[in-house]
Design a protein around this nucleic acid. Sequence first.
DNA 1: TATGCGTGGGT
DNA 2: TACCCAAGCAT
Length: 355
Amino acid sequence: MTTDSFAEQLLAWYDQHGRHNLPWHNNRTAYRVWVSEIMLQQTQVATVVPYYQAFMERFPNVEALAEAPVDDVLSYWSGLGYYARARNLQTAAQTVVEDFGGLFPETQEELEGLKGIGRSTAAAIIAQAFGKRAAILDGNVKRVLARYHAVPGWPGQTRVLNQLWEHAEAHTPDTRVRDYTQGIMDLGAMVCTRSRPACTDCPLQTGCKAYAREEIHLYPGSRPKKAKPEKTTWMLILEDKEGRVLLERRPPSGIWGGLWSLPEIDPAYGAEELQAACEHNLGLDCTEPELIRGFRHTFSHYHLHIQPARLSVAGEHTLRDNGQHKWLHRHEALSLGLPAPIRALLATPDQAILL
DNA sequence: TATGCGTGGGT
DNA sequence: TACCCAAGCAT
């Protein structure tokens, strides 16, 4: 495929207006590009930058990441969300060290074989790190292409997604792939934005079908609306005599998988049953619970009402430990990989409301 | 193939 | 306030 005018216009714009100094643009090793691409999945650049800097300082190369305790990796990911990315990142690092001698593979197929790397991320690594031709399709590119070609429908649908991939492949040039892939993402982030796009500044305006029809706002199609279910849960703040709090490691899958958090109790238990639940589930002898002001946390697919309850643990505790618990002072707990709302809860002084 | 997975920003 | 969505992938 020769460079069509789409790519030429885009590259000319990128040279003048694109972002050329993001942290992962310096010293573009496959490792550094890869970490940035994983962090940037569903996550905005401004959010990623400080995490990226700290992460690269602690895990400067793939070997350091491969051999680190998983708790270290998760603690550096704490607050970024989508924690499976962090677990997959370390798994993939171990694969690169053990199966590829510490060097990243350079083919689409081999890269996609690594945990957490899909079609678009593999392509981004190939283009950014190796300078070889590969088409990417992230949220920015989807928006640009959906508008440019007036592709109807929601990109979450496979049929729509496939059309966008075809356009992405068709426009990707043979030369300057690195700049092109960065450029089309920059255009989506800076000009072809979701709301109020700056079409007057757009290098692709003349060929843009949605612009010609004055229908920019129709593309890309929006996700079908769905009511978010409301869920509720108990979170226990169990304190011993020294003022330490009981932390519990969450199961490896599901929400906040693998993170340390507060012990969670099934909402089917009433407040008056929490004391018994502590004895039954954890083997702890507790005082009656004090309810702390609850709060609602919104996820992509549901709302979760988190109802904290504080209980004091009496005397010598005989915790039924399976390696998934630890007693820590609050300031120690905050250095763990905690879910954001739990971190906020522990950082705030309890405002107890007696039953 | 449709859904689950986090958090913060924009409107 | 409440909703939408963002440098997607795994299952």
